[in-house]
Design a protein around this nucleic acid. Sequence first.
DNA 1: GCGTCCAGGTCTACC
DNA 2: GGTAGACCTGGACGC
Length: 314
Amino acid sequence: MTTALSLRFPADFHFEHTIYSHGWCALFPFLVDRASGTLTRAVGDGASGSGVLRFSLPSQRRPRCELLTRGKPSAARLSAFASAARGILHLDLDLRPFHERMRTEPATEWIARARAGRMLRGETFFEDVVKMILTTNCSWSLTETMNARLVDTFGAEVAVGAKVAVGAEASSGSHLFPTAAAIADSSEDFLRREVRLGYRAPYVLELAHRVATGALDIESYRTADLSANELHRALRDIKGVGEYAASNLLKLLGRFDSLGLDSWCRAKFAELHNGGTVVPDSEIEAYYTRFEEWKGLVMWLDVTRHWYAEKFPF
DNA sequence: GCGTCCAGGTCTACC
DNA sequence: GGTAGACCTGGACGC
């Protein structure tokens, strides 16, 4: 059955600019339908408390949010699904100070006008960390492939009695992102040989073990009253999470004071600001330093500005 | 075909 | 603390 979820959206919310904010919408269990402007994904615990969230236009400011489930969800489950939806769209992030700052310069005024800056997140922070590890040192297409195999192999299937997706996407699109316990129950050899994670396999397995056993309460990072530096240190303590990954994970926690440069950002910065010649990271850092606690977000929006003017690549 | 390079990096050993 | 080298995969490219 389909149930409408009532979510409170911030005044500066923009649906498409959130779901296309970075590559997560192209990674299962997210599914985007560009033609209809719809984002869907399976959420829940893998049992009766599972369903599919469907966000859709017509309104960019207040998109429709529906829940597809096999039976009627209890009030408690509805509340849990609404909470998941809020987390995925990061609705609790207050971007008003950011947009106020962006309006103070002609070069960044477009960001406030576009209501850009909110980033799509996984259902759990565990999902975000695993996906970030899968982006390291490989092409984007390989990230998509590894993630799809991971979801297919370990993600519980969610049946809601309605068609969620068609064609090749139907399978992974109706699976949950794997739990830490499901991955921890595997082996490094299996993750290398079957899921083909390569040298990332021991990193993902160790993370899954730590989370599944309770040794690492990674979900608390989303609400922890820790400084950005403390969170950064905690993230760097995860094997496979280096400077790039930690900084970009901080962005998904609403902390934007580090850049999180990768080769793509460096090349894009060079193209935009230095005639195509790559510059040292220190020069990129200096360029954005005036934006202080927002510099990581300003950098990301600067190098992806053409997406907003032309076409989102996902 | 086949070899090489490298892509949305990170870790470890060594200095 | 700084740096070189190893590390999986798979697509692009040159031959």
